[in-house]
Nucleic acid binder design. Structure first.
Lengths: 114, 114
DNA sequence: TTGACACATTCCTATACAGGAATATATATT
DNA sequence: AATATATATTCCTGTATAGGAATGTGTCAA
């Protein structure tokens, strides 16, 4: 079985670096031409990335005449954030242990010096 | 160009749901057999997922005789967390606006009642 | 109406993938 | 040494890309 479709969930959609770049860009609304100018890709590739982002709800669009303006939908990133946050307390534990070891070492060094 | 390799970065590695499941599982150290029993996959598939997670630093291993014990390396998830957190203030803005609209509505309703 | 412009979609291709089956490697047991 | 156990790797296959090229669609302008 191949990897899940990029359109299936947010995790797959943001696995592509260019799409993350586009998401960061679209915190400020831009039309497709503006995105093409900003990232180093041809217009059809950009449109395809936008389609993926749209399908998982990571961007919204607004049509104005011939132009289509896209903007990031930040709330759609929350599931990813919440998942990562699940591990936060564990890496904090790690940092604490590192700190404790460092302090213990200092303490030992002090004992050794006299 | 195909999708980037799963081994290239943390974002690609966690794009696969089973790997996220394994990461959650390995907060508590387990051997491969234990993982196989927990997730519904054959041993070779599990070993391959572990290889990917290992290559991007998301898990560490400890050999004990014939058994290999894996555990999640929570700190390796931080880049993902930090990236998602970049958008936190924007979705908070959204929530604030929703709240403001709701309060404005209540206020209007009150004005209409008398 | 005829272009011109902005964007989206389709078709093509090389590549990466995930699981299954078979096999290899390493360690423990007898 | 021979065998059993635990895990890793290799080979195979159907599927999902991501970008390029070509084409389709909708809107504005003259």
């Amino acid at each position: 079985m191949p990897r899940a479709a990029t359109t299936s969930d947010v995790f797959n959609a943001v696995a592509e670096p260019k799409r993350r770049e586009i998401l960061a860009l679209l915190i400020q609304e831009r039309d497709v031409g503006g995105i093409v100018a900003a990232v180093g890709l041809r217009q059809p590739s950009v449109s395809k990335h936008l389609r993926v982002l749209r399908d998982v709800g990571l961007v919204r669009l607004r049509r104005r005449g011939r132009h289509v303006f896209y903007r990031t939908e930040p709330a759609a990133i929350r599931p990813l954030h919440d998942w990562a946050k699940t591990f936060e307390r564990f890496w904090q534990h790690q940092l604490l242990r590192v700190k404790e070891r460092a302090e213990a070492k200092v303490s030992n060094t002090r004992k050794e010096i006299p």
